[in-house]
Simulated scan of single mutants.
Amino acid sequence: MAEIKIEKKKPIWPWILVVLVILGIIAYLVYANQERDDYNDDFDDGVINEQVVEPDTKPLDTRGAYAPGTAYDQYTAFEGSIRDSTRIALDSSYTKKAYYNLCKAVAKKADENNVEDSQALTDLKEFSMLITKVSSPLSSAESAKNFKTASDKVAKVLEDIQIKSYPELQSQVADLKQVTSEMDGYISMDKQQDNITQFLQKSRDVLKAMNN
Rank of each mutant, 00 (worst) to 15 (best):
S85L: 06
T86M: 09
T86C: 06
I88P: 06
I88G: 10
A89P: 09
A89Y: 01
L90M: 03
L90P: 00
L90N: 14
D91Q: 02
D91W: 07
S92T: 15
S92E: 15
S93V: 06
S93D: 13
S93E: 15
Y94G: 00
K96A: 02
K96R: 09
A98C: 04
Y100S: 13
N101F: 02
N101S: 13
N101I: 07
C103P: 04
C103E: 15
V106W: 01
V106M: 01
K109S: 06
A110C: 10
E112I: 09
E112Y: 05
E112H: 02
N113G: 02
N113I: 04
N114Y: 12
N114A: 12
N114I: 05
E116K: 12
D117A: 14
D117I: 04
D117N: 14
Q119H: 07
A120R: 01
A120Y: 03
L121W: 03
T122Y: 15
T122P: 06
D123Q: 12
L124R: 11
K125E: 11
K125G: 13
E126L: 09
F127H: 04
S128F: 02
M129Q: 10
M129G: 05
L130N: 09
L130R: 10
I131M: 06
K133W: 07
V134C: 02
V134A: 14
V134P: 00
S135T: 12
S136E: 06
S136C: 04
P137K: 11
L138H: 02
S139E: 11
S140D: 13
S140K: 08
